[in-house]
Amino acid sequence: MGFRRDIADAFLKTNEIIPDFVEVAPENWINMGGYWGAQFKEISRCFPIFLHGLSLSIGSPDELDFDFLRQIKNFIAEHDVRVYSEHLSFAKMDNAHLYDLLPIPFRDDSVKHVVARIKQVQDFLEMPIAIENVSYYTPVAAQMTESEFINQIVSQSGCNLLLDVNNVYVNAFNHHYDPYEFISDMPLDRVAYIHMAGHEQVSPTLIVDTHGEAIIDPVYDLFDFTVAKLKPVPVLLERDFNFPEIRMLNHEMNQLRSIVHKYWIKDVVPA
């Protein structure tokens, strides 16, 4: 489960949420003091921490920010972090952060560029990272399919794949492809981590990955299909805002657990 301030008490005070691990965006917690700094220390003490970054901007033409990476590396060491993942997108351009995930053109030169940067990051952090397939709302000058793009990035960089099943569903709807075929085409032996979330349909032709709604049945079905093809990996329920009652979140987590238990006999153990 993602740790968010709105539901912090359910993790730390009432024990209504007892996840197997907790995911946070390091950008939200690095150098945080005071009340929330103390809350995060407690979370880190009680649960394994996974990091899911926002600002690395692996697909940006700008130079990698090694001061930022140094902060990430220190944070990983300080909190004994098991997984650091980022997005296959760009979020910085012309030395200006954009604070959202923009799509990288699916092109040969983009593959070379991103692969080189992932390798740099992995060398610096001295650990493999996982890269997430992002949702995107328009194609941008693509010269290959999304599936080809992801496969080339993963195979050439040696990184792991964070497979966001909801994003596959969203992209399949927005860009008119078969999500099941897409999943089958992914480098499934490199999947280290799965994200599940809700989304919002904002027009007859567009779905946006909001993390603000419950997971819908077709995404559960796609998840079931995916899990059947994978070795056990951690699964995250992403919920960032518009929180329902805690019992509803637990219901979603239990639905995910019931699916993984159909295929993975042992408990899911964080990587």
């Binding site: 012309d94 954009l98 709302y137 328009t138 194609p139």
Partner: peptide, 23 residues
Amino acid sequence: EQDLSRFGRTGNDTFIPGATEEG
């Protein structure tokens, strides 16, 4: 990428090959 970024920051007209107006 630069055009997409600038459009996101300004909303000023841009042309990106293959891009949809809604997106």
